[in-house]
Design a binder for these strands. Structure first.
Lengths: 263, 263
DNA sequence: ACAATAGTGTCTATGAGACATTATTGC
DNA sequence: GCAATAATGTCTCATAGACACTATTGT
């Protein structure tokens, strides 16, 4: 859309009306005649490490916000979609292609003063990565690491990234209720206990095991048994392995509630 | 967002590296050195008319897509947020301030070729308007009207607006399940039957009346009785009036199911 | 045998859905 | 009284939650 979605008599003329721009008004525009925005894509990449939901942050060395932590991100190229830019960033930071995990658009953050240097609008994405996490932090000199979200504070973050992280957490937590997204945190095959641990890490509280199992197994299309069991290094009965059975949407949803007594 | 969220050794230099841009690199950027995007805001404004969920569309008179219908929208000014631009558009088209209805960000659409003339990225919003709808269509010469969503086809829409409308419908339909957003379609006070009709219009199927009432009345914070009844012009028992009681999130949600037999 | 982990069975309370019934108005 | 609309009551079935119990492994 653009001018065209506006009633015709309101079609805005270029800010600087030059002879050239008027001539080409019905043809192709001169981009420089319109308010110029820089467009970036930032990603909140989540994974579960040691039972804790964690997000990848990069330490800033440069002004502004030098020393603060920021979400990985970068400019959207003039020839690529914001989605492509996000997938590119994901690959650069973790070595994962979208499809190994899960990548979805979150929201767009565009307050005029969110970057002190110029007008930058950021399309934010959320990525969910399998647990071993391929940290690949020190892929370059810059400091990058996964932070448990419980340790991430607004003060340590640059720009409006605290807003983005908050929004991303809300999204992930509620999406686990009515979609099968939890499996994006796990490898191809997984045990039901591992699946439960993902839910517990994301929601931040324990879930009753027996009821969780019944619920998961009775939801059509959520998981299917592989017939195999997980190799064990410690005692205890080996756990059966499952894989995602294709369904994205959960009917009915797996609602979260506050802490339950039992484990 | 921007260079700053990228590991420091990857901070991109301006595309055209001039003496000026290098000097100011740590200060303020010259926006013209970065890929220039035009930023617009399009809104899917929904209301319920005669029991049908409807969306406001504007007919295009100009190339490209002349004659096709498009969502109302316009450029985001360099000094305003996309939210402000959307609120401005909403006011221009319907005379409503956000707060009379409901306005929320939907998603951002930014495929490189979505506008044949130049690179335009659109931040799309969803607005829900009280039913009488203040069409205010002919506020200007351009043709604008509410279309029942059942009559809106991909072929009649300009640009990627069919994608936007589809995404918006998904959002509205699922948000009615777990939030109190249905009240945004209604005036300050409303009857339970009117609330039910909103659900039926948005979901496109009938709901069992007795169970809907029990569900709504048993959900804490959803509605509270005003003690008054709706003026009636026809026979039948007058309906009690309720108002929204503040709660946004529904616990538990009001899940939709396929058609039920009874009315 | 015991510890540790995985998995099953059972009881109860709640809520959804179907459907019958009562209440209040205009004509 | 009757039609039309609003509101309530009752029954059944499914399921969430609590919790006790069984199964399979390593030491």
């Amino acid at each position: 859309m653009t001018a065209l979605t506006i009633p015709d008599n309101e079609v805005p003329m270029p800010a600087k009306v030059t002879k050239e721009s008027q001539e080409s008004f019905l043809g192709s525009y001169d981009p420089h005649e319109y308010p110029p925005f820089a467009l970036t894509s930032d990603i909140a990449m989540f994974t579960v490490i040691d039972g804790e939901l964690s997000v990848l942050l990069v330490r800033r060395g440069q002004h502004p916000y030098a020393g603060k932590w920021a979400l990985p991100g970068g400019f959207v190229d003039i020839n690529e979609s914001p989605e492509d830019a996000a997938a590119r960033e994901l690959l650069e930071e973790t070595g994962l292609a979208p499809g190994d995990g899960h990548l979805e658009q979150l929201a767009t953050f565009g307050k005029p003063d969110r970057d002190p240097r110029m007008r930058v609008v950021s399309v934010a994405y959320v990525a969910l990565l399998p647990s071993p996490g391929t940290p690949k932090a020190g892929s370059d000199a810059a400091e990058a690491r996964f932070w448990p979200v419980s340790q991430v504070t607004a003060e340590m973050l640059a720009f409006d990234h605290a807003d983005i992280v908050d929004t991303a957490l809300d999204r992930v937590r509620s999406k686990l209720e009515y979609t099968a997204l939890a499996v994006a945190f796990l490898p191809e095959t997984f045990t039901l206990v591992e699946l439960q641990q993902v839910y517990e890490a994301v929601w931040g509280h324990r879930i009753a095991r027996a009821n969780f199992r019944k619920k998961v197994l009775s939801t059509p299309g959520l998981v299917s048994a592989t017939g195999q069991t997980r190799e064990r290094d410690r005692q205890g009965r080996p756990a059966a392995l499952y894989r995602h059975a294709g369904t994205t949407r959960l009917h009915p949803p797996l609602l979260r509630h506050e802490p339950t007594a039992s484990n």
